[in-house]
Amino acid sequence: MRDLSGLHVLIVEDEPVVAMSLEDILEELGCIPVGPASRLSEGLALAAGAVDAAILDINLAGERSTAIAELLQARDVPFAFASGYGAPPDGFDVPMIEKPYRAADIERMLQVILAG
């Protein structure tokens, strides 16, 4: 098991309550939340910075977070998608975590993608 403390984890989530919960979960795991970004442009800007991992909501107020995923993939930053419903965008072989999720789901997912 990898120690998650001190990892910078980007949160891309347009639902404020959900974003706040995820922030709290990450903090409890010892991570440092980056964001949350609720817009595509915001997410892209943060993804270009110092992040170790990312959790991307697929739908962002009508936009899709695919561009952020591509940027992260290009930078070799592990990430997972989070969504209430539906399939991950085509072309990404990454895990998807279904909303609503629990702290344990997030921890397991981070272990998987960081081990990946």
Binding site: V18, M20, G84, K99, P100
Partner: peptide
């Protein structure tokens, strides 16, 4: 989709 989303909010 909306139900799942709402549940996520409720959970939050």
């Amino acid at each position: 989709h909306r139900v799942k989303n709402t549940l996520a909010i409720v959970q939050g």
